[in-house]
Write a protein that binds this DNA or RNA. Structure first.
Lengths: 344, 344
DNA sequence: TTGAAAGCGCTAACAG
DNA sequence: CTGTTAGCGCTTTCAA
């Protein structure tokens, strides 16, 4: 009866029911598996559904049952780095496995926008919410999220009721340092950032631990806090390399800083990896693969974090708050061309 | 009656109606403005709604009316570059202005995934769909999208019924070349990519036009197709710079290639911008701001494209196919440190 | 200017 | 194992 010209009317559950000669209830259950159905009947229904190209309207579904087949992703910034894309990608893949879709909202790190975003996502009755940060941070989950199932990605919180996933920052420092000591380096510089964030103190702790393991006393003058970009890395490297008894290797806070270290080394007439070895963090391939020599670096698992967070959301349905998991993800070291044994 | 322990029942339109002493119909209209309401009554309703923190359930709304307050964004890759984030960000901002939310789906450039994505987005009854590419391409809009309101972002198609937005590639080549000739350069190299895509032939056409404008005959040997990454740029620059009568400036297909040009120049003992000027395309700040000297480059307006596409979707409601707009966005040249007058 | 009633497409509760 | 009935929270007729 609803034969609009041009637009084919969407096939609904009733069409399938009619085609299969059963009630809509049976169709619903045959498709969802919510209750036992005669094998033959099921086949008939599934068949009709497939033939007609039927798939249920998630809105109607959600209106009646609790679920909307929709997951919210609320982050502070998605525009700046390639990380965001990977995290979104992981989250989306996990959501798809559960027949769900991602609703993405970026607060641009503005409180007001965040609250608006929460409101919007709540209005849409998302089944769960990933509260994500682009740079590993400690956060407090906004009150407005009360009653919503939340998992933190690349962020942690003191409130133990929330599941969260973050990179193992200490492990990053440890791996990088171990890698360098295993090549025989004993004077290893570390460019870090001045902010007191998990990435900074975690990596530093790992760095210290790695030196300790190798029986090396930490030389505090080898730890240089600067900005976490190329300019910062360049400045730090100048400080470290332009002096007697310079380090034979530098562990950089991130790949951008490593790029700056390359620049400084060049300016000082030092070659990488022959005169100085370099390890970065992030594996921003735009940089790590472009540098000459290519950069040995530790990859941050943004895809995995996004994926895990959403999967956790689904597992978490009906779980007690005490079941929350705080996960630290190990980060792989990608061996490339910027590390060699010390030459001296 | 629905006093669950812990969970506050959501306030619905009925609660507002009761509080304001009117029918749900009146509340609906007072909030949507769909029909005239007595001024006092309206105030009373709006007041009650605000006090109770009411906002309508978009699913229920969508079930009854046509709209879902949801826009789909289907792209080929969101994981690799920072572009994606900017495009998403722009799209999201535009959606928010229309009280809508973005549902993002990434096909990972796999046909099967794309079809699944379309299916999902259709199931969710998105009000419109942005069909996006991360690199400017010519595409054919999949048949499965029939009946859905579609706008293309960073992609164009021969089918004139679709609105689309792409960067003005010819303008990019023209601007870059003009900028260089305005500094007095007359031998200008161009590193491009071998693929026959709009970005390649568009920028080349602009480059030729720019030279022509300045009364310079094109030297075909100055046009070098390679891969559009640092390695490619490096190889191309070696070819261009390591010979007599070398160009005094190079226009690079993108910032990554420009990074390679920097490397080659260094290896050949040439300084930028003194011996060679360089212009890139993309303004990937990870690179353009990190290079020494900073890179003069042309920014690709991904944020704007995302934003425009979604805005267009909303304008388009009820428009005839003949109203479709194919837009080319001019791209701003960002002047930084890599261009100077030729030294010779 | 307002309200009552119907119904969007589905699933849950309640029969049988 | 299956069907009938009710109703999720809204907006849209239709009627006053």
């Amino acid at each position: 009866m609803d034969n609009n010209v041009g637009a084919t009317a969407r096939v609904g559950i009733r069409d399938v029911a009619a085609a299969a000669g059963v009630s809509t209830t049976t169709v619903s259950h045959a498709l969802s598996g919510a209750r036992a159905i005669n094998a033959e009947t099921r086949v008939r229904v599934l068949d009709a559904a497939k033939r007609l190209g039927y798939s249920p309207d998630p809105r109607a579904r959600g209106l009646r049952s609790a679920r909307t087949y929709t997951i919210g992703l609320l982050s502070d910034t998605i525009a700046v780095t390639p990380y965001a894309g990977q995290m979104i990608s992981g989250a989306q893949d996990a959501a798809a496995e559960h027949q769900s879709v991602l609703m993405i909202l970026d607060s641009h790190a503005i409180l007001e926008q965040e609250q608006l975003g929460i409101r919007t996502l709540r209005d849409h009755r998302v089944d769960g919410l990933v509260y994500a940060r682009m740079y590993h941070q400690e956060v407090t989950v906004p009150q407005e999220l009360d009653g919503v199932s939340v998992v933190l990605a690349n962020a942690s919180t003191s409130d133990s009721q929330f599941s969260s996933i973050v990179p193992d920052e200490e492990g990053i420092g440890l791996e990088a340092t171990r890698h360098l000591t295993s090549f025989g380096h004993r004077r290893i510089g570390f460019t870090t950032i001045p902010e007191s964030v998990p990435a900074a103190w975690g990596r530093e702790r790992g760095y210290r631990k790695g030196l300790e393991e190798a029986g090396i006393t930490v030389d505090e003058s080898l730890i240089v806090p600067t900005s976490g970009d190329a300019a910062g890395g360049r400045a730090a490297a100048r400080l470290l390399l332009d002096r007697p008894n310079r380090p034979t290797a530098i562990f950089c806070f991130n790949d951008e800083a490593a790029m700056g270290v390359y620049q400084a080394a060049r300016e000082l007439g030092l070659s990488i990896p022959h005169d100085v070895s370099v390890v970065g963090v992030d594996d921003l391939q735009l940089i790590s693969l472009a540098l000459v020599p290519t950069l040995t670096t530790i990859a941050l698992p943004h895809y995995e974090m996004g994926r895990w967070a959403v999967s956790r959301l689904f597992e978490q349905v009906g779980a007690k708050p005490t079941d929350a998991i705080q996960k630290k993800l190990p980060c792989p070291l990608i061996q490339r061309g910027s590390v060699a044994p010390p030459s001296s």
